[in-house]
Write a protein that binds this DNA or RNA. Structure first.
Length: 290
DNA sequence: ATGCCTGAAGGGTTCAGA
């Protein structure tokens, strides 16, 4: 198997992001792209960019709906066994378009948009935890060869938010959410970006308001979680902050992971060791605190 | 000012996001 570049990006409306998405595809040239928050129905997705993607050699698996949510996988290394949705997943009350999976280049890829949760005492929060339990059940069947990519709406540790105090008591950082994520990882999935940058300040989301990106006050909630057979092929992993800059960005940046060719012999793990020291921690407050 | 941006739907505003 040839080297493969996998990316995941919450685009916050594929329609609004088209002027950023297409040039980004041409510049980064990912082989597999998991998208979240496409915010459009499947026929609208095809009308909007089906031709543009075909021109670039991508096959497309979409699972969308009008207005909210919506996920997709673009692949130019094969797209087989496409499965929209998550078997047995709860709805709110009806199933939402939050997952799509396909086999791309021998890897079972799942693009996920985990429910937000809103507030820890809400039905939305309980829905989020139940949905994560369903995701774990689905991944369990192919744990070694699966890669879960997407917006998990959970910061795995306090290291993944600019200031833990700013998020105290809010969703994305509560122990039950982190436990649900840890249970998913306990299947053997590795957090590829954190493994590569264990002590770095790495975020993937910055609020649009109050200059949060400019101050680098964000969270790391977009993850690539890879089973052993995938994780052992990782050559590089990084957050494409350039895509968060300039005019009309999403509030999330893409995560990009390069896989080496699949070993046919005894090629071992090739993740390089980190070298740079940890960056200074931020100390500002959330936007709603003046 | 516990939504300071942004997007969608729909209608002159409201809901949702993290």
């Amino acid at each position: 198997m040839d080297p493969v570049r996998i990316a995941t990006w919450n685009v916050n409306s594929v329609k609004q992001r088209l002027p950023r998405l297409l040039p980004w595809l041409d510049e980064r040239r990912p082989d597999v792209v998991c998208l979240q928050e496409t915010k459009c129905a499947d026929d609208a997705f095809a009308d909007l960019l089906g031709g543009e993607l075909a021109d670039r050699g991508y096959a497309v698996a979409v699972h969308g709906e009008a207005t909210w949510n919506g996920v997709a996988i673009l692949s130019r290394v094969g797209l087989d066994d496409v499965a929209p949705g998550l078997a047995g997943a709860p709805g709110f009350p009806h199933p939402e378009a939050r997952a799509v999976s396909a086999v791309c280049g021998g890897v079972r890829v799942i693009s996920v948009y985990v429910p937000n949760g809103r507030t820890p005492d809400s039905e939305h929060y309980r829905y989020k935890l139940a949905w994560l339990a369903s995701l774990r059940e689905t991944v369990a069947a192919n744990r070694d060869t699966t890669v879960v990519c997407g917006d998990v709406n959970i910061a795995p540790t306090d290291h993944d938010v600019f200031d833990p105090q700013a998020y105290a008591g809010q969703t994305h950082v509560t122990p039950p959410e982190r436990a649900a994520l840890a249970e998913l990882q306990a299947l053997g999935l590795r957090d590829i970006v954190r493994d590569r940058w264990p002590d770095e300040r790495v975020f993937t989301y910055w609020d649009y308001r109050a200059g949060m990106f400019h101050q680098d006050l964000g969270m790391r909630i977009d993850l690539v979680l890879a089973g052993a057979k995938v994780a052992d092929r990782v050559k590089a992993a990084w957050v494409d902050r350039q895509a968060r800059k300039g005019r009309g960005p999403s509030d999330h940046a893409p995560v990009i992971v390069d896989l080496d060719e699949a070993p046919d012999g005894d090629i071992g793990p090739v993740v390089p060791p980190p070298s740079a020291p940890a960056a200074r921690r931020g100390s500002a407050r959330l936007p709603q605190s003046p």
